[in-house]
Design a protein around this nucleic acid. Structure first.
Length: 195
DNA sequence: AGTTGGATGGTCT
DNA sequence: GACCATCCAACTG
């Protein structure tokens, strides 16, 4: 329900801006493939490569609304949290509280952010390069059986303060306005517009 | 309601 | 050695 477009090597907000590297290599490859990277040392983000070989464009998946499988997503979120606790030394008293809160989190909020999408679907760098259009793939895109496409709103991309204009302000974040599963950053923005 | 800072490690200069 | 397509708790007012 929320994505961002990264438009190619000339897009100075894109990981592709400095050309092909080991990290962003799959972006330069075939479309329909997953580009997964690690941010801030602890979070993963999922992108879908969108253009032909040699043109490094991709869509960042920023939020997903659970339609079914919410319980599996919650389990994956809890496993992610537990791994995180296990790697933290020493464990703190807040750890138990975090798990309790996750247990009562509304399903609509389980994947309400780019890193949460990866946590809820157990996506990490091992999924980098996976063919999302292969029906036999564990991680894949499927055609939605909705009657009509939802309304779409736009805004500038999040977390790219390093990018110069015009890239900084390009309205290349697309989302379903009012959807309960939007990222907190986008939900906040919608509130401001409403006021 | 808005701002700040800490966790944490791969990638690139 | 700086930077980072994040998240959340703990602040401030």
């Amino acid at each position: 329900v929320e994505v961002e477009a990264y438009a190619g090597q000339e897009d100075l907000a894109s990981h592709a801006r400095a050309g092909r590297t080991k990290r962003n290599a799959v972006m330069f490859g075939s479309p329909g493939v997953a580009y997964v990277y690690l941010v801030y040392g602890m979070h993963h983000c999922l992108n879908v490569v969108t253009e032909a070989d040699g043109r490094a464009a991709a869509l960042l998946i920023r939020a997903v609304e659970p339609v079914k499988g919410g319980e599996g997503m919650r389990t994956a979120r809890m496993e992610w949290q537990q791994r995180r606790i296990a790697s933290r030394r020493p464990p703190t008293a807040a750890d138990d509280r975090d798990l309790t809160r996750l247990r009562s989190l509304p399903a609509s909020r389980l994947a309400a952010g780019p890193a949460l999408v990866c946590a809820a679907f157990s996506i990490d760098r091992s999924d980098d390069g996976v063919d999302l259009c292969d029906p036999s793939s564990d991680l894949r895109l499927e055609v939605a059986d909705e009657d009509e496409p939802p309304a779409v709103a736009t805004g500038p991309r999040i977390g790219i303060d390093y990018a110069p204009e015009p890239w900084l302000s390009r309205p290349w974040r697309f989302y379903v306005p009012g959807n309960p599963s939007l990222s907190t950053a986008t939900a906040r923005e919608v509130r401001q517009v409403a006021r």
